[in-house]
Write a protein that binds this DNA or RNA. Structure first.
Lengths: 282, 282
DNA sequence: TTGCTCCTCACGTCACGTGAGGTGGC
DNA sequence: TTGCTCCTCACGTCACGTGAGGTGGC
């Protein structure tokens, strides 16, 4: 018979742990003094303690261990539990490796630029969304402000004209695969409720279509001037590269700030840049 | 200005999370209605929310994130924190991979034997320990009970004779590298207080020496009859093999049950089998 | 009037660690 | 009498999830 202190040393656990296991009914002392409430253990309780510790070491919870020890569990059932645990741990390892990758990408960014990037990339999903869009090719970067303004004016007019119901913010979609300053293929668009029938009264450059649902969307929020959005985009692409993804669709630019038709030249905008991505095979 | 529900959708977090961040001072609403206590957020708070989520994604605690966001932290300091995080995650990955190995070893054991092993292997360290030991070569397995009895008698006599102070249980040490049923090289020993000087009155087969401290000791507790201890030993070696270790020293058998000189032939014993091990290079 | 959204407590999570405050045996 | 070991509460951990109970605006 051992007092709790001696038994705790034999089992390499704390006294509190033994009390805790007593409380849970996992390992009751062989005897309890009825006057002092002292707990007494016997050496042949050591195997049970070791069982508990070993199962805990495999990652089982004390509740699960209790059911394993209660003997109403068969070898197959334990096998099943361990298979599940195995899968869980494998997942955790993978998650940790992804996390490690993100941490390293961050470190690299700090080392290379010497300061902390003001942009945070967030992975999202998005459902399929229907848009009313106006496509134009912008000849040069300088033409952009004027083009954009007239494009959004036109798209709002088309919305009213066709009697469509708006369902979300303005967005812009860029179709050039790479960064360019000439012949920028872009759409000015509005999220709309999917119409029952496509109205006939659309101008030739307008179209209604559905952006596909995307499982993986790398996004970044830009808050500042509109021309500066290029910084957000490059930060986004840097992140995509160093984190083992590749872009696989056109860039979308969601206007979180309201409308591009309001506000002057120096106004601050808040918008979200989105790029559909997929994991690169490695 | 957005109500908490809308803002939570934009940020892909729960309402409770936003309230929690408010409570911690991580992300205070831009405005709070003084009558209804409604929280109101602005879009330009979205980047800050995303920062928080991104840093959390790297594994930082909310407390750490607060200090990062409080701006009194430099790029180097953040770099340092992330280096630390990186090391932590690497460790966690390794720990998980070891755990995975143990789980798989368990699964294998169940698959091969169809039942759950009654033995649990526990890794320990042990400090250096001084023993008074009597070495003999046991000719055959059948001679074992008789030999052991006389050996422990002799070792207790030597203890008294030399006036040494006992410091722990009986133990047996086996020096054959492999399992054998003939010419078993064994010692019967007692843990003793290290004597200031080695007494001259020792019989030639007796010796006092110090078992070295071991950083890694694979141990298993056997509770049952003495001859059955072989099952514990084989379970121990099976574990050692499937978990990527190798034995690197003699087997020790610690008598947790008291003395081998007490108790009859059918008595139950509780003893701990110990083997020093090291990780196998892989 | 009925839903909807928001609010403030406050408990629960998991396996103990860590005091606080008190008691028996050498 | 002083240490030592033991005892029983009970709070704290971390980032929220989940009711309970109640209130304003359409």
């Amino acid at each position: 018979m051992f007092k709790i202190g001696d038994f705790s040393k034999m089992g390499q656990v704390s006294i509190r742990t033994l009390r805790h296991y007593d409380e849970l009914g996992l390992l009751k002392p062989a005897q309890i003094d009825q006057f002092t409430d002292y707990r007494f253990y016997t050496i042949d309780q050591l195997p049970r303690l070791n069982r508990i510790l070993a199962l805990k070491d495999l990652g089982l919870s004390l509740e699960q261990i209790r059911s394993v020890l209660s003997e109403d569990i068969s070898a197959e059932q334990l096998h099943g539990m361990l298979m599940l645990k195995q899968a869980e741990i494998e997942q955790e390892v993978e998650e940790n490796q992804r996390r490690l990758r993100r941490v390293r990408a961050r470190l690299e960014q700090i080392e290379q630029e010497g300061h902390v990037s003001p942009y945070e990339v967030v992975l999202k999903q998005s459902p399929a969304q229907t848009v009313l869009a106006l496509h134009r090719c912008v000849p040069q970067l300088d033409d952009m402000p004027h083009y954009r303004h007239t494009m959004y004016e036109a798209v709002y007019q088309a919305l009213e004209h066709a009697g469509l119901e708006r369902a979300g913010p303005e967005l812009a979609i860029y179709h050039n695969g790479e960064y360019t300053e000439v012949e920028i293929e872009m759409e000015a668009a509005l999220l709309i409720q999917p119409p029952a029938t496509i109205p006939a009264s659309l101008a030739p450059a307008d179209r209604i279509y559905t952006l596909p649902a995307t499982a993986l969307l790398a996004t970044v929020v830009h808050h500042g001037s509109l021309p500066q959005v290029i910084k957000a985009i490059s930060a986004l692409y840097a992140w995509i590269g160093t984190n083992g993804y590749v872009g696989c669709g056109p860039i979308r630019e969601i206007h979180l700030f309201g409308s591009e038709l309001e506000g002057g030249r120096h106004s601050q905008v808040t918008l979200e840049v989105q790029v559909p991505v997929e994991k690169v095979a490695y």
